[in-house]
Design a protein around this nucleic acid. Structure first.
Ligand code: SF4
Length: 236
DNA sequence: GTCCGGTCAG
DNA sequence: CTGACCGGAC
């Protein structure tokens, strides 16, 4: 039965996953409704707050980000506020988070948005990718989580979840592994993309963790190939 | 001590 | 493409 979800050459059988996608999305959504953490950027979701949170979360853990995020958004509640601010207090607010180029880029990008996008976070992938500090992951996260647009979002967590789900038994290509990205697109719930992507990321953070995945508590375990093969912990 | 992570400059 | 950026988890 496991083999039915793979092609003869061992690759991911996208056609089969396409057929399984509604069930996968429903399991994921049902779990997420009860498991989602109450985080400040979720409590009050806007494109700007999504952007700030995702940049902070790129290389910093949730628990550490929360107080920084609260202070940052209190000081600069919208992109126009940051654009109007001098750089020094922005760097000051970032102290302790590390990767200070993120703060400089965010500040520069806010000014670009003010000057070239009328002070509105653009809801366009190419425009987002052109902003400093927004790469393939963060641009898509802003689109999907901030604007609820149907785009696949694959960070390290989601890549690992999907690789296990489809038992992709090889090192993932850094950045967007093409096969994993295609799988993410096939599984995407286009009727509720924000919830779907948040749920995938939450599953990677809380259940399908790098070290010891909690398959017993996982909503996807009935359809997970790594689980079926007892390989969950040693796949990417 | 080693590894990890998105993005960017080189 | 590779290495640098930083701090935390292991
Ligand atoms: S069943 Fe286990 S390996 Fe598969 S997605 Fe869930 S936690 Fe990850």
């Amino acid at each position: 039965m496991a083999e039915i979800l793979r092609t003869p050459d061992g690759g991911v059988n996208l056609a089969r996953w396409r057929a399984a996608a509604p069930g996968v999305a429903a399991r994921l959504a049902g779990w997420f409704d009860g498991a989602r953490r109450d985080l400040p950027w979720r409590r009050h979701r806007t494109p700007w707050r999504t952007w700030v949170s995702e940049v902070m979360l790129q290389q910093t853990q949730v628990a550490k980000v929360v107080p920084y995020f609260e202070r940052f958004c209190a000081a600069w509640p919208d992109v126009a506020d940051l654009a109007a601010a001098p750089l020094e207090p922005v760097l000051k607010a970032w102290e302790g988070l590390g990767y200070y180029a993120r703060a400089r880029n965010l500040h520069r990008a806010a000014r670009v948005v003010a000057e070239r996008h009328g002070g509105r976070v653009p809801d366009d992938l190419d425009a987002l990718l052109a902003l400093p500090g927004l790469g393939p992951y963060t641009a898509r996260a802003v689109l999907s989580l901030g604007f609820d647009r149907p785009v696949a979002v694959v960070d390290g967590n989601v890549g690992r979840v999907l690789a296990r789900l489809a038992a992709v038994d090889r090192p993932l290509r850094p950045g967007a592994d093409p096969e994993i990205f295609r799988l993410a697109e096939v599984l995407l719930d286009r009727a509720a993309p924000r919830r779907h992507n948040e749920a995938l990321m939450e599953l990677g953070a809380l259940v399908c963790r790098p070290g010891r995945p909690a398959c017993g508590a996982c909503p996807l375990s009935p359809v997970c190939l790594a689980r079926r093969r007892g390989r969950a912990a040693d796949l990417p």
